[in-house]
């Protein structure tokens, strides 16, 4: 798949802080559209089945209602959902993407209407070819409707608070008996090394077992070289435990008792 030219959209606030929005690619958006299309079909079917009771009463009215239902659903589904769910439809929700204003501002109703009505042009000549082509060429992966409405589609930032508990378990740390060595450790290691260490431990479950063992051995050896803890503190420790102790020693508040 061809990636959009900029995978992120950087917004710089007047306070001088920059934050970036991760732009959604064509495949995620196309899948979301597929889901939404399926949902509209199902809803249309349900409505039509309900109204088919009228069939015996007036066939003409039933046909008229079915034509209007399908049209309203087709045009209004995205508009309504994006409006009440702050830029998400069912498909977008499932694929964790969201429509946003291209300047990071609040999404306006007119923008939602605009980007959805413009689908008539984006879906030309079939299956959103025009929109897809526009996405490849536009700077922020926007289809024509997004360009006109000044919107982007981004991956939803997962509002997850970092879990440090997993990193710093309340376990006995044999290094704590050697405060002077811990102090040396804090002084010696660089931020980059610590970040590497933290990440290696945080992503424990995402690593292959073999790769994990190898990585932790390499890291542990590296930290053993920097500060040598006495035999009785490190004996019997696995590489992973050694690294956890190291992190604990670095991050623990100096005055904190065990």
């Amino acid at each position: 798949m061809i990636e959009p030219r900029n995978a992120t959209l950087a917004v710089r606030t007047p306070e001088g802080v920059e934050f970036s929005l991760l732009l959604a690619g064509p495949s995620a958006r196309f899948l979301a559209w597929g889901i939404d299309f399926g949902v509209t079909l199902v809803v249309a079917l349900v409505v039509l089945t309900t109204f088919s009771i009228l069939q015996s009463f007036s066939g003409d009215l039933t046909t008229a209602i079915s034509i209007l239902t399908f049209f309203v659903l087709n045009t209004g589904y995205n508009i309504l959902l994006e409006w009440i769910w702050h830029g998400q439809t069912l498909g977008k929700f499932l694929l964790k993407i969201r429509v946003m204003d291209a300047q990071g501002l609040r999404l306006q109703f007119s923008q939602i209407v605009m980007r959805n009505l413009m689908r008539t042009v984006d879906m030309l000549p079939m299956l959103y070819l025009a929109g897809g082509a526009a996405m490849l060429f536009s700077r922020h992966a926007q289809r024509l409707g997004d360009l006109a409405a000044n919107t982007v589609v981004v991956h939803t930032p997962t509002p997850k608070q970092p879990d440090l508990q997993q990193l710093l378990p309340d376990k006995y740390n044999s290094f704590r008996s050697y405060p002077h060595l811990e102090a040396r450790l804090r002084q010696q290691v660089s931020p980059v090394e610590v970040a590497l260490l933290v990440q290696a431990l945080m992503r424990r479950n995402e690593l292959d077992p073999d790769a994990r063992v190898a990585l932790y051995r390499e890291l542990a050896d590296h930290f053993r070289e920097q500060v040598a803890f006495p035999e009785e503190a490190s004996a019997g420790l696995t590489d992973e435990q050694y690294l956890r102790n190291t992190v604990d020693s670095i991050f623990r508040k100096s005055g904190e008792a065990n």
Binding site: T13, V17, F19, L21, P162, V198, Q199
Partner: peptide, 14 residues
């Protein structure tokens, strides 16, 4: 380098 906290904060600030 803290991708998780950073991502969380970027979302919040955004």
């Amino acid at each position: 380098v803290e991708p998780e906290i950073r991502g969380y904060l970027e979302g919040l600030v955004g």
